[in-house]
C-alpha cells in the first residue's frame, strides 16, 4: 500500500474520518482515483456522499486521515492550490451563480485566479463555445432554463481549467432532455482525457456509463468496482434506493422468454446485442431452411 506513487492519482484518500461530536459521517474511507477516470458515487440520502466530495477541496475539513489531490497533500496552506485543481458543480443551479449575467459569473472564478482581462475574455469565449452558451453570455441567470444554468455552471468551472471535475447531483433538477445533454457533455469531457470526473448521482443510466462505481452506506465504502458488475446486484440497488437500469430489466425479461443476451447495463450495448442476436437467429433459420 505504502508504495503507491502518489502523483499517479488524481485523488487519494487514506483512512479519512469526518464527524461532528461523537457521530462519524464518514468512517475510515480509503480511495485511490487515477487520472482520467470517470467515477460515480451512489448511496442513499445521508450516506455521506456530499460530505465526501466536500472534503476533497476543503469545503469541509476532515477530522482524521490524509487527502492528496494530484499528489498535493491537503492542509491549510495548500487549500488554495487544491481548489485550482478541483472544479465543482452543485445540484441547485440557482444557488451557484454569483454574477448577474452568465459572463460575469464565469469571470468571477477567473478574477479569483487574478487573470488578466484579455486572458479572461479568451477563456470565457473558449469555454462558452465548448458548452454552447455563447448566446447566453449576457443573460441573467433567472432567465435561463435548468439545463442552460447547469451548462453555464460547468463552463464557469471548466474555464478555471481544473483537472478534476466534481458533480454533486448536477442533473437532479433537470428535465430528461437537459439531463441527457449534460450526460453528453460528460462523455465528451471523459473522451477528452484531460479530466477526472467524480459524479454523485441517483441515475443508474449514468452509472452504467462510468468506469467505476463507488457505493457509500452509513459513511463507509460498501462496494467499489465496475458498474457492469455492481449494477447487477439487487441488494446494492435496494440499499441505494435505486432501480435496475432499463437495459438490465430488458435482459432479464428476455431471459424469462428464453432469449439469453447476457446481463448488460448500457442501452447502447443492449441495442447492439438485440440486433446481433436477431441476425444470428435469422441466419441459422434461413441456413437450415435453405
Amino acid at each position: 500500500m505504502g508504495t503507491i506513487d502518489k502523483s499517479k492519482h488524481a485523488v487519494l484518500l487514506e483512512h479519512v474520518y469526518y464527524g461532528q461530536g461523537c457521530t462519524n459521517v464518514l468512517k475510515d474511507v480509503s480511495l485511490a482515483i487515477p487520472h482520467g477516470q470517470w467515477v460515480c458515487i451512489a448511496g442513499r440520502n445521508g450516506a455521506g456522499k456530499s460530505t465526501l466530495i466536500r472534503l476533497l477541496n476543503g469545503l469541509l475539513l476532515m477530522s482524521r486521515g490524509r487527502i492528496l489531490i494530484d499528489g498535493l497533500e491537503q492542509s491549510g496552506r495548500t487549500l488554495g492550490d487544491i481548489r485550482r485543481h478541483i472544479g465543482m458543480v452543485f445540484a441547485n443551479p440557482d444557488d451557484q451563480f454569483v454574477g448577474l449575467t452568465v459572463e460575469d459569473d464565469i469571470a468571477f472564478g477567473l478574477e479569483n485566479l487574478c487573470l488578466s482581462r484579455e486572458e479572461m475574455q479568451h477563456r470565457i469565449q473558449t469555454y462558452a463555445e465548448r458548452l454552447d452558451i455563447v448566446h447566453l453570455l449576457n443573460r441573467h441567470p433567472a432567465t435561463l432554463s435548468g439545463g442552460q444554468k447547469q451548462r453555464s455552471a460547468i463552463a464557469a468551472v471548466l474555464a478555471m481549467e481544473p483537472s478534476i471535475l466534481v458533480l454533486d447531483e448536477a442533473a437532479s433538477m433537470l428535465d430528461e432532455k437537459a439531463k441527457n445533454e449534460l450526460l453528453d457533455s460528460m462523455r465528451a469531457m471523459h473522451a477528452d482525457g484531460r479530466y477526472t470526473l467524480i459524479s454523485i448521482t441517483h441515475d443508474v443510466e449514468e452509472m452504467a456509463e462510468a468506469d467505476r462505481l463507488i457505493v457509500l452506506d452509513g459513511g463507509m465504502v460498501t462496494a467499489d468496482g465496475s458498474p457492469r458488475e455492481l449494477l447487477l446486484r439487487e441488494d446494492l440497488l435496494q440499499r441505494c434506493r435505486l432501480k435496475a437500469p432499463f437495459a438490465l430489466q430488458l435482459c432479464r425479461e428476455l431471459k424469462e422468454r428464453g432469449i439469453d443476451i447476457g446481463e448488460l447495463v448500457r442501452e447502447k450495448e443492449v441495442q447492439e446485442a438485440l440486433w446481433l442476436y436477431h441476425s444470428k437467429r435469422y441466419l441459422t433459420a434461413t441456413g437450415t431452411g435453405g
Binding site: G147, D175, K177, A178, A247, V270
Partner: peptide
C-alpha cells in the same frame, strides 16, 4: 416538452 422517448421506445 423537454422529454425523451422512454428507453423501450428508443430501442
Amino acid at each position: 416538452a423537454g422529454l425523451m422517448a422512454p428507453s423501450s421506445v428508443r430501442i
